[in-house]
């Protein structure tokens, strides 16, 4: 008799377990599905935003361009008119409102080149950076200060005053040579070019004996 009771209890237990399974599986089917985040988590994005390592200074960028570093790709995120007006040499133009287009994805979503975003100041470039970072694109840097900083440091470097450290003078020399590379002409260059033209070719010196004409004494009268 005890065995029969045990058997009945056990059977009931299995029914309960089966019911629990079906309820759980049914819940999985019936729960509303929401779209998951594409890309990285919000906490990661926040920590990336605070991290200043994404900035690249203008000196660094000038050095890379001059030494023809093949691993960087410059991207101008301003609109097309500003791009046609002036841009850093060898830069692509992807305007900010076209950043997420299909055709630009192949420039952004790759890990062979380091991308450097720049714009007039680093605000638009930072916006572009946040969008791309959210989508988990790697190797993206932002030019600190943008084109404004480029002008005031590379194209038009400030002459250091006499009481600054020697490093400042070295930096100024580097910036000046960088600006010459990018096409800026300095007055000293023009003078140096003209000097050799002004010097005529010196004719070989001939020894000319000058016979001094003896001046006849003035004869008085005729």
């Amino acid at each position: 008799m005890v065995k029969k009771k045990v058997a009945k209890v056990l059977a009931f237990r299995y029914k309960i377990l089966a019911l629990i399974f079906i309820i759980l599986a049914g819940g999985l089917v019936l729960l509303p599905k929401y779209k998951k985040h594409e890309g990285i988590k919000p906490e990661t994005l926040l920590s990336n935003v605070i991290n200043p390592e994404r900035y690249i200074s203008t000196d660094n960028l000038a050095h890379k361009i001059i030494s023809k570093d093949p691993s960087i790709l410059l991207i101008d995120v301003r609109d097309e008119k500003s791009y046609a007006n002036y841009t850093i040499p060898n830069a692509l133009n992807i305007p900010l409102n076209k950043l997420l287009d299909e055709e630009n994805e192949m420039y952004l979503d790759q890990d062979q080149y380091d991308l450097v975003f720049f714009s007039n100041d680093n605000f638009s470039a930072d916006q572009a950076w946040i969008l791309c970072n959210r989508l988990d694109y790697t190797n993206i840097k932002v030019l600190k200060g943008g084109i404004n900083e480029w002008f005031s440091t590379i194209i038009n470097p400030a002459i250091p005053s006499e009481n600054m450290a020697a490093l400042e003078f070295e930096l100024y020399n580097f910036r000046k040579s960088a600006s010459m590379y990018f096409g800026v002409m300095y007055p000293e260059q023009i003078k140096v070019a003209k000097k050799p033209e002004a010097k005529p070719v010196a004719a070989p010196k001939k020894v000319i004996t000058i016979e001094k004409k003896k001046k006849a004494p003035a004869e008085g009268g005729c």
Partner: peptide, 13 residues
């Protein structure tokens, strides 16, 4: 996958 799990559960029971 969710329908698959549900049908699998019913079959298993």
């Amino acid at each position: 996958p969710y329908w698959f799990i549900f049908i699998f559960t019913v079959l298993a029971i």
